[in-house]
Design a protein around this nucleic acid. Structure first.
Lengths: 192, 192
DNA sequence: ATAGTTTCGCTACCGTAAGTATCGATACCG
DNA sequence: CGGTATCGATACTTACGGTAGCGAAACTAT
């Protein structure tokens, strides 16, 4: 039972192992130029890779960065399946980070109910919804992953980094984080 | 002391009163097509207005929507000035909406400290920072408004609408709200 | 009335960036 | 060596933000 046993290598030239290089180039380019100016061309140049190579591996810039974030931070560690366990896991994870038990429930309350105002029912990208739904579906299988992704990447990364560095946060980084994450919820292109 | 007394009407053709129409068209277009596909051309068409007219009144798409949001929801009601009162006001405002007193402090804690990870120090738009800094500076005058704007528009609108409708929230609208707001934190253009 | 000033809608245009198409070269397999 | 799939490079299409210039309309002042 050695691994890589069931499927032989596919024919043709194998892909070069530049995914990690592209991820690093993506993050550093965003760091240097800001998200808006981190174009695919520049990311490709920073990675020393042709733009077409990036588009052979990721169908869009959005999915590249979703993969990049998942690679960098990964999902919430989960101890169960199903919605209740899912929310509970996220809630306790957040609560543990913050240190106050009541806070997690508050987050859960804020993020688990809904408004239905026509002015706010902005349609999300079904394409990218499916994208990270699939990315987490391996472990779970329910359609509640959007909020978890949000909590995970935005709040999670925030608190994760807080715990890592122990440095004080400035409000700018909240917006920066969200700026970095949120465009991938959009459908087509070009907010300015 | 009739109003409009101090300044006589400026020369030239006066502006037609279509600002409200443009705001409504902006919201409905985003509602119909999603933010990414709500282009300025489409908004102008929906408003029955020339695109150039929009650009005569708002210097960019981002500022149009900032104005649109401010027009729709307005800032947090404040009872004092200075940072402490500012945060306190926001915190108690949020806490009152949620109903749990500890929650506000948690929000304040999460949003008031900072990380300094190079991968996350995404540069924010100084232009748009100044935009809504000015929008609130009338009442205040400190540089903490980014987080307040974030809390105000995102969480505030969320909870405001909750209180208005009393309906349950779904996670989708959290992302939708943030999707709707966050592109205006970006500097240049074109996330996808 | 008429001159001056500003906005209007309209059309054409520019710059940029996402994404596609094509091609010769290259790296693997049998 | 033949088949296949990737690689880099270049050129291209498309879409959208934003600008320029026009004649027409709406207002004020003389």
């Amino acid at each position: 039972m050695s691994r890589a046993s069931t499927s032989a290598r596919p024919p043709g030239r194998p892909r070069s192992g530049v995914n990690a290089v592209v991820f690093a180039a993506t993050l550093s380019t965003i760091d240097e130029l800001g998200y808006a100016r981190a174009t695919v061309d520049r990311i490709a140049a920073a990675a020393g890779v042709a733009k077409t190579t990036i588009y052979r591996r990721w169908p869009s810039k959005g999915e590249l960065i979703v993969d990049c974030l998942l690679d960098a931070f990964g999902p919430i560690p989960l101890e169960g399946a199903g919605r209740a366990e899912l929310m509970s896991s996220a809630v306790h994870w957040i609560a543990a980070k913050i240190g106050e038990p009541g806070v997690g429930d508050a987050f859960a309350g804020v993020f688990s109910d809904a408004v239905s105002d026509p002015a706010l029912r902005v349609v999300l990208s079904t394409r990218l919804q499916d994208r990270y739904r699939l990315a987490l579906q391996d472990a779970l299988g329910e359609p509640e992953h959007r909020v978890l992704f949000f909590i995970d990447v935005v709040v999670g990364t925030l608190l994760h980094r807080m715990g890592m560095t122990g440095e004080p946060m400035v409000d700018a980084d909240v917006a920066a984080l969200v700026e970095m994450v949120l465009p991938y919820f959009a459908d087509g292109a070009d907010p300015t």
